[in-house]
Nucleic acid binder design. Sequence first.
DNA 1: AACTCCCTCCCCGATTCCGGCGAGGGCGGC
DNA 2: GCCGCCCTCGCCGGAATCGGGGAGGGAGTT
Lengths: 242, 242
Amino acid sequence: MGFLSSIPWIEKVLADLESAEGLGDLQALAERIRAEYGVGHVVYHWVNSAGQQYGCGTYEPAWVQRYLDRNYLRIDPVIQGCYQRFHPVDWKRLDWSGKVARDFLRDAVAFGLGNQGYSIPIRGPNGQFALFTVNHDCDDDVWAAFTEENRRDLILLAHYFNHQVLELEPGRAPPEATPLSPREIDALTLLAMGYSRAQVADTLTISEHTLRVYIESARHKLGALNTTHAVARALQRGVIVV
Amino acid sequence: MGFLSSIPWIEKVLADLESAEGLGDLQALAERIRAEYGVGHVVYHWVNSAGQQYGCGTYEPAWVQRYLDRNYLRIDPVIQGCYQRFHPVDWKRLDWSGKVARDFLRDAVAFGLGNQGYSIPIRGPNGQFALFTVNHDCDDDVWAAFTEENRRDLILLAHYFNHQVLELEPGRAPPEATPLSPREIDALTLLAMGYSRAQVADTLTISEHTLRVYIESARHKLGALNTTHAVARALQRGVIVV
DNA sequence: AACTCCCTCCCCGATTCCGGCGAGGGCGGC
DNA sequence: GCCGCCCTCGCCGGAATCGGGGAGGGAGTT
């Protein structure tokens, strides 16, 4: 991962952490990053397609637990906001109106979070979604200067965290199913576009019976229970693009 | 976009290109990148959720046209391979077995492409998928050294291209539809998991009639023509994750 | 307090989809 | 040259889904 070399302090830190292994590495790295930049918190949060979460960083364990207990994932404006974008987002630009969002923020501050935040979303196939966040307590001007100056480092660090987590997550490759045939892809693609079976058959200029053979074939290949499921899986696996 | 500042030549080039505007900028930038690194080709290729494609780079127009004409998007192992990952990929690590893939490669070389390539996939919500590719003609050792040395720059440049394209693509925000309610999300999520309506209603412990209200409501919000379409759109927009 | 949105339930009929069956010709790979 | 996969077509009945429609209580926002 030589691409981090533009970050002055990174070599030494990574060397220090070499002895550790697995995800503990990243936890320790987050601590070091916090120290190097003198910010309140550094956190990496990752959600895979199965809804499993993984996180590491400098948040208080009590806050992490509360976040999970209260299912804040569905409330957190940072998640909500970043999920739709994929460029770094300053927390100020998010939508904090609404009662639940304000309550959430108040709760977060009570657990030691700062009022400023900067989050970098990274996405992968199969709904993988990760967030690298830096949190701090300061006024707007100071924060704007900080983010402007260190954005590049943060992007690269986000990539690094993501790379490490994926390396340690072997649960991606297995569903390496048999590929879909062109006609099967055509069929699922048109279905995903909202066409009815009759319309799809007409568009492909085949009989509806033939179409059904494709759909069923695709369903079996994808291990899907019905047509909607097949379309969903095909989309998730990226075998069709609508 | 100060995060590019670690690339020595970038400031001057960006200043030179300041006068140009729009996507022409990126075309010219690709040319400059090719010159700076002394490689065969530099290309940025972008596909959005509507299946629209946009590309800029140094490939011969004849090759681009042929790529489109022959619908190589569905054949290209670079696309196929990168779509499932989201870390930089050396073309050597892709699957070039199979007749169509080999034919494709032969055709590409005939149109001036080199035998080496390095592609950086970047993904966004709504099925956005972009590829930043560097292509060259040399032996494996030289190429390995090149990629190792310049990976960081390439990642940052990929981000830059992506940022610029999204800035110039106002067609993203409009479908800023009303958000789905929690129950609607539950319903679509379970449907995407392959459950039948009866099973979903049972799982949510509501009547099937109520469930249908959610599905229809979600369908209208998503502008979907039927249930399968609604699930597909919800997946693409990232409002549900199965 | 008015407003909007969410959740829940019910009616109806027509349309569509599901699931498994069989059968033939063609192309590419081993 | 054989095997496997792909493409194409047909029939069947039962089950599920798709359209709207109306109606009430509750919570949050303004």
